[in-house]
């Protein structure tokens, strides 16, 4: 007798007990499932040891004007280039309106150290290492870097000028510890 009549119990306030229990149970299970998915998704993010590689110190004393070196930070290549005065002048000549990702060379270097151009060696298109850091490599139509993968040309301030890449080569966070030592990261 009880079960038959009890289904209408509590109907006065417009909520049937069974509906309430149903919704509560399913929501509870849903919250539980979401709580389990969270660590399953998050485990894919960089682990602590990968993040721990986050700063690198480099000695730049041996880099002559007009030369560049390749080093690495967080497992990504980094270019350190000692720009010549001609290269700096060339970069300054370009009107910002001509740039896909407008930035001046001053915004891309440290004050008083504008000959030191430090960027990631990761093409902003799909991530190849552009050519131009080593002696004799193709430096593209604008005298900076050239990415052979899909043909992106960067200028002497490593700004994108031609090809499919959307952005300038990224300038990582870095500090000069002294005139000859830089810490990246």
């Amino acid at each position: 007798m009880a079960s038959e009549t009890d289904t209408t119990a509590g109907i006065e306030d417009g909520v049937r007990r069974r509906d309430f229990i149903n919704i509560a149970a399913v929501s509870f299970a849903g919250v539980g499932a979401a709580a389990v998915v969270l660590p399953l998704v998050n485990q894919m993010n960089p682990s602590a040891d990968v993040l721990a590689l986050s700063s690198t110190e480099i000695d730049i004393s041996a880099i002559q004007s007009g030369q560049a070196i390749k080093t690495s930070w967080r497992k990504q290549p980094v270019f350190v280039r000692n720009l010549t005065p001609v290269e700096i002048a060339e970069a300054k000549k370009v009107p910002l309106g001509d740039l896909r990702d407008p930035q001046t060379i001053d915004e891309r270097t440290k004050p008083g150290k504008e000959n030191w151009l430090i960027t990631l060696g990761v093409c902003t298109h799909l991530g190849c290492v552009p050519l131009g850091a080593a002696e004799g490599e193709n430096r593209g139509d604008f005298g900076g870097y050239f990415c052979p993968c899909h043909g992106s040309h960067y200028d002497t301030a490593a700004r994108i000028r031609k090809g499919p890449a959307p952005k300038n080569l990224v300038v990582p966070p870095y500090e000069f510890n002294s005139d000859t030592v830089v810490t990246i990261g």
Partner: peptide
């Protein structure tokens, strides 16, 4: 994996998440 970085705003975090690193 660079394809995913083309997605506006969330692209780079997705790429890093897929790779579990920066490269």
């Amino acid at each position: 994996t660079g394809f995913f970085s083309a997605i506006p705003v969330v692209g780079d975090p997705i790429r890093v998440w897929l790779l579990g690193g920066f490269a």
